[in-house]
Design a protein around this nucleic acid. Structure first.
Lengths: 338, 338
DNA sequence: CTGTTAGCGCGTTCAT
DNA sequence: ATGAACGCGCTAACAG
């Protein structure tokens, strides 16, 4: 029997490498403790010479530490899970960038999961996050507090981003949806607009959208709601509906898109068709990317600050990770109209 | 000295819970081996009764397995790292969705990292991916093969997505950038267009853009290139440049955007200004989200299929994970014009 | 400055 | 059908 290759232990499932700390130690003529110290930056606890030898050995053997083993004893992976609502949204991805900017300043790193606007999938992801070795989780969830509690069984630092929840047991970072919608609407009301056509996805889903609706309503309650399905819709039909709605009243009308996508997909055509004149018919809406601002120079929009929301969430997470326990406070990152 | 709380062992860095397999075993009156079997689905190796007792105990204690310990012995985490070029791009996020669709069918799960179009950051992320316990990595990299090799020291399955590289040691999944750009250009040439204004980010960055350029050039070589900075640019100035370029020639001109963003940000205005008539001045370009198709009914665009590219990458990864070693083949997922 | 050693929590033979 | 015991690779006392 050939024991040569057969005996070769594998440290990775894929690959031939076996090299572990003891190999490095052997080659460098030191104990594994010394190697460990070197790896963890305790260079003051060894002579420069040994350090060099260890470094050489590591390099020569192409040694890479086994993170699972390290995590098991350190009880930390340095990884923070971020579960976003839908990564196709600029809001989510930009928030993630903000989160990472903060986390990385302290050596942590965020990894992104995509719940794809699906309640069950989100729950599934939270389970995985709970089962894997993440030091914390930043959530932008659709599920309720109760479901989240039941799903994430392991005690771990949690921050809720972009979701306002009553009685949240975790800190949350949110936007002033109600206020800014109100402010924008007021601006147009002052200019004589008396009616709103609101374009939105299904209202039931997110509390955010509901807040925006209430914000508008608190100023102008003559609102026509046009619901468009996120998944699939007939572009032409929506345009017709919009046209009909616009022409259906003598009042000066404000078209209010709760999501940037509706702005970029429908509004340019309305401009082109001459239906929007900024005088009797104007447009506004939430616009995170800034793309929509180029539709027309006179259009004023609402810009959220997903990056800052992420950064704030990341900062709170860092505090929790470092044991400075914070209360489940609520931080409001205001959106801006103008 | 108070040994009460002080002696409490913690299994998580944050949280009071200590419950581990032996606790479950104790409560269920079985050995930890049995619990382990239960957890790993070896239900045929125990009586239904014991299984129930174990299940109860797990539930009662709210036990969650320590994934680090499990990974250490199983040499697998079930996690696949995806390093995307820029998650603000629909292409990247949609590709990620495609990847996950495949991976999840076999119980794996993809996690997303964002290199933010930054070479150094990408390298840093690859290091992390290499050091952490991921079963494989799907890369959409800007770095060269050599850098990647040096950075990811640990032998692990790797797939290159959306990046065409000569002599790649890893399988790759790409788009027919050259061909489809050529095809689109040909279409307009046949209609009498003799000149192209190409809008792009910096050409040097990605091979993809270069291929597109060559594709156009192979049909029409009268090309004016307008470079726009991804990070920041003056919208008004770009519009002026475009206007000047358009008016700078008597030839029928095709405006060709290498990226959807330039389509949605500049073209609607040009339409509105009457500069585009689809007759002497037409527009085309790469458009992944489909948003741009509503700019004008007559506009024909190029649609890539990031989801499918992701799915293919995921499938290849699965094969590699299951040991069916594939050659570093190249799969082409064609983009469509029309 | 450096080495020895006892765990970390779980999977897995090998017995029974 | 079930348990005892070893080992995965590394860190952190402790010892010297």
């Amino acid at each position: 029997m050939n024991w040569g290759k057969a005996m070769e232990k594998k440290t990775q499932k894929h690959g031939k490498s076996v090299v572990k700390m003891r190999d490095v130690a052997a080659l460098a003529n030191v104990s594994i403790a010394t190697v460990s110290r070197y790896l963890n930056g305790n260079l003051d606890r060894m002579s420069a010479d040994t350090a060099d030898r260890v470094a050489d050995a590591i390099d020569k053997l192409n040694y890479v530490p086994n993170s699972a083993a390290r995590q098991m004893v350190k009880k930390s992976s340095g990884l923070v899970a971020v579960v976003a609502g839908n990564i196709d949204d600029f809001f989510s991805t930009e928030m993630f960038k903000g989160i990472n900017a903060m986390l990385e300043s302290k050596g942590y790193i965020g990894v992104l999961f995509d719940s794809n606007s699906d309640l069950d999938r989100e729950k599934h992801l939270m389970q995985i996050v709970s089962n894997q070795y993440f030091d914390g989780a930043i959530l932008q969830p659709y599920n309720t507090v109760q479901v989240i509690r039941e799903t994430i069984k392991r005690p771990m630092p949690i921050v809720m981003a972009d979701r306002e929840i009553e009685q949240s047991p975790w800190p949350q970072v949110v936007t002033n949806n109600y206020e800014v919608a109100r402010q924008a609407t007021q601006y147009y009301k002052d200019k004589g607009f008396k009616r709103v056509i609101m374009i939105t996805s299904s209202l039931s889903m997110a509390a955010n959208r509901r807040d925006r609706y209430y914000g508008i309503q608190s100023v102008i309650n003559n609102i026509d709601v046009l619901e468009v399905s996120e998944k699939s819709y007939n572009h032409k039909k929506v345009l017709e509906q919009l046209t009909t709605l616009i022409n259906g009243s003598q009042e000066d009308t404000l078209i209010f898109a709760l999501k940037e996508r509706w702005l970029t997909e429908f509004i340019p055509r309305l401009f082109y068709m001459g239906l929007i004149d900024n005088d009797h018919v104007a447009v506004t809406g939430f616009s995170d990317t800034g793309t929509a601002q180029y539709i027309d120079a006179k259009t004023k929009l609402i810009a959220q600050n997903p990056y800052l929301i992420g950064a704030s969430s990341g900062e709170i997470m860092l505090n929790m990770l470092e044991g400075k326990h914070r209360d489940p406070e609520k931080i409001v990152v205001p959106a801006k109209f103008g």
